[in-house]
Design a protein around this nucleic acid. Sequence first.
DNA 1: AGCATTGGTAACAGTTTGGTAACTAGTAGA
DNA 2: TCTACTAGTTACCAAACTGTTACCAATGCT
Lengths: 136, 136
Amino acid sequence: MEKIEIKSERFDNMVEMIQKYGGCPVRATLKIIGGKWKPLILYFISVDVNRFGQLQRMMPDCSKRMMTVQLRELESDGLVHREIFAEVPPKVIYTLTTKGESLRPLFGELSRWGIQNVLEPQQIEPNNSGTSGELV
Amino acid sequence: MEKIEIKSERFDNMVEMIQKYGGCPVRATLKIIGGKWKPLILYFISVDVNRFGQLQRMMPDCSKRMMTVQLRELESDGLVHREIFAEVPPKVIYTLTTKGESLRPLFGELSRWGIQNVLEPQQIEPNNSGTSGELV
DNA sequence: AGCATTGGTAACAGTTTGGTAACTAGTAGA
DNA sequence: TCTACTAGTTACCAAACTGTTACCAATGCT
């Protein structure tokens, strides 16, 4: 039975945070943005592709059902706002909430890291193995 | 059939990136760090909790099998390095690779966003719904 | 009457991910 | 001889996530 001494100068003590909040904050974020189509949906809404049908045409591999499911989750997590117009045929527009907008810098970094470390293969280290296959 | 005009001043044209790399870079990153125990494992390794058994004692809810699975994926994705000592009883130590280290700032932001927007409930907006339940 | 339009649902099937419990090897110490 | 130690593996099961197909309503157009 050894005592583990954690050096916590870098990001400060995660164990305390987990106990305080009842969970890992990184994981909490990932649960919200981790849906297969969510990053892309958020991106498109952010550039004003804001109607259901438009989103579908931009992401033809995402089925209607998945589009609905993901949009509803984003809505209930407070990242997007759904406005319904009482017209026929129906009209619904999606916009980012403030919370949704606040993800921008994060997505910028996630994107940059992904390009540098996953999508661009020109690395000196012989690291061609790993999780591959379809990415979206 | 309408033409969709995307205003792309903010993060520049994602559609081009997806076509160039064959996938969404954000999603690519999330696939690598998204495993249930990966953020925590990476964190603990980063603070020198670097042996299998130590990791297990720090994360008692992660079973042996899951620990192995996640560690092997992290290894094959090039985020952690696994060094085996030919001793009895066996000794293996895990360390972050350069690629693994490069995740630090990203994890910092993911953590901050999670605390502010998910784990801390004190918000003015009445946004108490959403994905909840166990976080780790 | 018949078709197109938009923004969905419902029922179901398949895939991926996570979890449990039992078992392993080789050596040291009681 | 029996137990403990470390770092796993194997077989199997359950839950979560994603995908397919068919269907709906209200109106306008031909």
